[in-house]
Amino acid sequence: MLRWAAIFFVIALIAALFGFGGIASGAAEIAKILFYIFVIVFVVTLLLGAFRR
């Protein structure tokens, strides 16, 4: 999931570089959402691993 967030971030940077503001903002929003989902899943997995032991 972090890989997909990085891919959309790169797409957003390239689109912004070429002046496509709408595509850049859309790709940046998708990257942001995927990153937050990754962080939430990581924290939940970390806590479940800590409490399991």
Rank of each mutant, 00 (worst) to 15 (best):
M1S: 12
M1E: 02
L2V: 13
L2R: 07
L2W: 10
L2N: 13
R3K: 15
R3C: 12
W4I: 11
A5I: 04
A5P: 02
A5F: 06
A5C: 01
A6Q: 15
A6R: 10
I7R: 01
I7C: 01
F8Y: 09
F8A: 00
V10P: 02
V10Q: 08
I11Q: 01
A12M: 02
L13R: 04
L13K: 11
L13M: 05
I14R: 00
I14S: 04
I14D: 00
I14M: 01
A15W: 01
A15Y: 00
A15H: 03
A16S: 09
A16R: 07
L17G: 13
F18I: 13
F18K: 07
F18A: 03
G19Q: 04
G19I: 05
F20Y: 09
F20Q: 03
F20L: 12
G21Y: 05
G21P: 06
G21V: 10
G21F: 08
G22A: 01
G22E: 12
G22Q: 11
G22Y: 08
I23T: 12
I23G: 02
A24N: 11
A24I: 04
A24K: 05
A24M: 09
S25K: 12
G26Y: 07
G26M: 08
G26W: 02
G26R: 07
A27L: 08
A27P: 02
A27N: 07
A27T: 06
A27C: 10
A28M: 12
A28Q: 13
E29F: 10
E29L: 15
E29I: 13
E29S: 14
A31M: 02
K32V: 13
K32I: 11
K32Q: 09
K32D: 14
K32A: 14
I33E: 11
I33F: 06
L34P: 04
L34N: 03
L34T: 08
L34M: 05
L34I: 01
L34A: 12
F35M: 10
F35R: 03
Y36C: 05
Y36V: 12
Y36K: 12
Y36D: 05
Y36I: 13
Y36N: 09
I37Y: 04
I37D: 05
I37K: 11
I37W: 07
F38S: 13
F38C: 11
F38M: 08
V39C: 15
V39M: 06
I40M: 15
V41C: 10
F42S: 11
F42N: 09
F42E: 15
V43R: 02
V43E: 00
V43A: 07
V43Y: 03
V44F: 01
V44H: 01
T45Q: 09
T45P: 03
T45C: 00
T45L: 15
L46C: 11
L46R: 11
L46F: 08
L46M: 13
L47C: 01
L47Q: 02
L47N: 08
L48G: 02
L48T: 07
L48P: 05
G49T: 10
G49R: 13
G49V: 06
G49C: 09
F51P: 05
F51N: 08
F51G: 15
R53C: 08
R53L: 09
